[in-house]
Design a protein around this nucleic acid. Structure first.
Lengths: 206, 206
DNA sequence: GTCTATAAGAAGATAGAC
DNA sequence: GTCTATCTTCTTATAGAC
């Protein structure tokens, strides 16, 4: 990897572990394998490295949003897919979201950095909210709206149903960010959650 | 308020807004109304101020736990109370927990500080987990266990039911910590959540 | 582009007068 | 217990050789 990219990559790792103020330019340089002054040939300041991380993240989020909405844009096609969705497929959706959030290396490090820096800069709090609260609720809400319309799920309040689906996923994610050794337990809980969710909201109750 | 107490109080406010590393001893002193060197007549270092905050919090948490468990310890008395619980009472329980977390000034500042510093010190992550994840789940789980036994609620998995009750409360709390102007909306969502929860789990379905 | 040497400044902490 | 003056250390950033 070229040095400029390696600098932002190692900086993100360190920022996500200790926060911006507790990471020194010399720490970043050491992990890159150069000395601190050499960093300044690539970025004009420590802040510029941080800004480059934010920019890179924006680029990735836009890419992802594009990928996620390929089907979302064509609601009629999605309705067909979700009409006959099974419990196992519902688990797959939830687990997929959870595993992506937890295991995508860039996403995980970036979220941890946001968590630490969120009160320091209001813009970062907004990015966190959009990425891990509002966007997932909107996206999942749209899918569940289709599933209610097509008669797979039943509720008179899709937003609350979506909250009931997503809030446990969100909470388990924040648990695993703090205590990664609880991941195996979290995955089991997640599966039990979705099975129960399906029993509660499925249109054809057994 | 005496100076020593005012120091930890102002320090907690600043740490919760900016994080430990971004607060200088001179900032704390300024808010207390003295100069930086005077701080050292009360605490031997900046770290000692931080430690005093943690200690004070431990003291408060123990007090609260004692208060909360007055009834919890006598399960048979609680069973009687929760046997005929109404939807409004369920909303009162959830709202009470939410409002306490959100509006108790010490709790709110302390939680924000923990949120920022959690990856910096594993012990802080554990305190956060215990206070805002594990203890509420255990306590609510015990109450719901009683309610299932007494026939008010119905489920074959109390832990997941408790997760369904608490995870939305937790998520709404983290939203309001970041974006306080969304509190009014959060309270409405919370009430709608609990009404739906009650419909889903109530033993006497209407 | 990387290095060594070093400037510039910030922040924690101490000394000693009052 | 509070102040001013100061020390010390750490950290960002620059200068200039290679």
């Amino acid at each position: 990897m070229d040095t400029k990219k390696k600098i932002v990559d190692e900086a993100l790792t360190l920022f996500s572990e200790r926060g911006y103020a507790n990471v020194f330019v010399a720490d970043i340089a050491e992990r890159v394998g150069i000395k601190a002054p050499s960093i300044y040939k690539h970025y004009k300041s420590k802040q510029a490295i941080f800004d480059a991380i934010i920019e890179e993240m924006n680029r990735r989020f836009l890419e992802e949003a594009g990928a996620l909405n390929i089907n979302g844009a064509d609601a009629s096609a999605d309705a067909e897919v979700y009409k006959h969705i099974s419990e196992e497929q519902l688990i797959a959706i939830g687990s997929g979201l959870f595993m992506y959030f937890l295991h995508d290396d860039y996403t995980r490090r970036f979220r941890k950095m946001l968590t630490i820096e969120q009160f320091h800069d209001r813009k970062l709090a907004d990015v966190y909210m959009k990425q891990y609260v509002d966007d997932p609720l909107t996206y999942q809400g749209m899918l569940f709206g289709l599933m209610v319309t097509s008669g797979v799920l039943k509720t008179d309040n899709v937003d609350i149903m979506t909250l009931h689906f997503y809030a446990p996923i969100y909470m388990l994610m924040t648990i695993c960010d703090r205590e990664p050794e609880r991941e195996a337990e979290a995955i089991k809980t997640l599966e039990a959650h979705i099975r129960q969710f399906n029993r509660l909201y499925s249109a054809d109750k057994k």
